[in-house]
Design a binder for these strands. Structure first.
Length: 436
RNA sequence: GUGGAUAUAGCGCAGGUGGUUAGCGCGUCAGGUUGUGGCCCUGAAGGCCCUCGGUUCAAGUCCGAGUAUCCACCCCA
């Protein structure tokens, strides 16, 4: 006996069994349809790009995580997100696009980071972005909030909250209290407030060089509470310069317009501590959490960026976008047994020829059922009756249709409901009615 | 990059202080039911116990190294 190669896949990569895949696809379909409903068009960029294109903007940590290799004379990289390829796409096809350009893309991206729970090296991102030429109205930011909200409703994962902040408010505020050069650090620290508590935040801020007065102001700032309007009102009272005020104006507009577009107050909330991963965002930022599953982290994030494609073109292309990490979301849902609401299979009928002499009649039966638009499988293998019904049952089909000598003689089929166990003989012409 | 854990049948796991035929559950296959699954019963197949080295009369078990995987941190365009 020769030694076999162990079948296995790479660390950090994943694949699903058919039933899970079906549910995964079903979630993806819901996201896709919602994006379409808001007027987004699909695009599909290459998995591989020239490194010089993909890395135009990258540096540091990110660059280390990119899968990069040479193929003959080409230095190639695998896309690590869908935003950079979008920037390239828009810069390249500028003349042929209609602006504001609304596109969605659902594709796999690749990151060579250490995998851990819910984090993979290959995973799906579901992105939707609007790109403006020169300018992009702030109301698009509000529309994205509704888009997120609609997606969450479609996915039907329970209560959710779209948390909104504005990067201008944060930058303006920290600038005004003299922490301009430490903004990145400060943002990272205050973002951890929920996770590690106030004392630890104070400690870390102080380590980074913030003085007592500054820390006090920061704590006061992030503890602003109340309804969205209360928060806006509180922010209005703070004197922190022009950028800050602009941010507050924008935030207020987004909140108000989102309401006009049908967002209810309970699903959208201003959260001044949202600050993570905002490096390239310049205005509105979003994070979405599932109520009762806050430990999932954000399931849909995004924001506004002022100039998407500055590395590729002199044109000014501001945008606002969102992204759902579907692979991670799915793995969290599965782990927490939250996939029950999703339909589990698609073949609803399996035809079982009870003996090999029945194949021709069975073929006729299958043809009739399929012509009626009903999903129908047929089991051709010459196995025991037990094995045939077991197959039907294990594929998750709702019905088994037994076709034997008796049925052929009577021009009927025997339909068994695999959930209830009931079965009865039905005339072939009436088969389709039975499944309606 | 840092720290922790794990590695035994297709999958999930058990195998005190080393001791002779390595078990259990699920799944698979067969039979009980030659045309009836999902429940029940009976039986069968399926293992270089991750790799290499060491200790020992004796290693799945102890020691060392390697590899792989998972978890957490870091980071997260």
């Amino acid at each position: 006996m020769s030694e076999k190669t162990t079948p296995r896949i790479l660390q950090g990569f994943s694949e699903l069994l058919p039933q899970d895949q079906f549910m995964f696809d079903s979630l993806m379909e819901k996201i896709k349809n919602t994006y379409k409903k808001y007027g987004f068009y699909s695009i599909d960029t290459p998995t591989l790009e020239l490194s010089e294109v993909l890395l135009a903007k990258a540096g540091g940590e990110t660059e280390k995580q990119i899968y990069r290799f040479n193929h003959y004379d080409n230095d190639l990289s695998m896309r690590f997100d869908l935003t950079v390829p979008l920037a390239r796409y828009v810069a390249q096809h500028n003349q042929d696009l209609v602006f504001p350009f609304k596109r969605y893309q659902i594709s796999k991206v690749y990151r060579g980071e250490r995998p851990q729970k819910g984090r993979f090296r290959e995973f799906y991102q579901c992105d939707a972005d609007v790109i403006g030429a020169d300018t992009l109205d702030i109301n698009y930011d509000a529309e994205m909030v509704c888009l997120i909200s609609d997606v969450m409703k479609e996915l039907d994962l329970g209560d959710y909250c779209v948390r909104i902040n504005n990067r201008k408010i944060l930058s303006g505020f920290f600038d005004s209290i003299g922490l301009k050069d430490k903004i990145t650090d400060v943002l990272r620290i205050i973002d951890k407030l929920d996770k590690m508590g106030k004392e630890k935040v104070v400690e870390e801020l102080s380590e980074k060089g913030a003085d007592k007065d500054q820390i006090e102001k920061i704590l006061g700032f992030i503890s602003i509470s109340g309804t969205n309007h209360d928060k806006i009102a509180s922010l209005r009272k703070i004197e922190a310069g022009e950028l800050f005020s602009t941010g507050v104006d924008e935030l207020e507009t987004v909140i108000n317009m989102a309401k006009m577009l049908g967002m209810s107050e309970k699903n959208v909330s201003i959260d001044l501590s949202i600050a993570r991963g905002l490096d390239y965002y310049t205005g509105t930022v979003y994070e979405t959490t599932l109520i009762g599953h806050e430990n999932f982290g954000s399931v849909c994030s995004g924001g506004r960026y002022d100039n998407l494609a500055s590395y590729y073109t002199d044109k000014i292309l501001p945008g606002v976008g969102i992204s759902i990490g579907l692979t991670r979301l799915f793995s969290l849902l599965k782990e927490n047994d939250m996939l029950n609401g999703i339909e589990k299979n698609e073949t609803s009928v399996v035809v079982l020829p009870m003996d090999t002499g029945r194949f021709e009649y069975a073929a006729k039966v299958v043809k009739v059922i399929r012509e009626n638009g009903i999903k129908c499988d047929i089991f051709w293998s010459d196995k025991s009756g037990k094995a045939k019904f077991k197959y039907a049952s294990r594929t998750g089909a709702g019905f088994a249709v037994a076709v034997g000598e008796t049925e052929e003689t009577n021009n009927t089929v025997t339909i068994k409901n695999l959930e209830t166990g009931d079965q009865k003989e039905v005339e072939l012409e009436k088969v389709s009615e039975f499944f309606r």
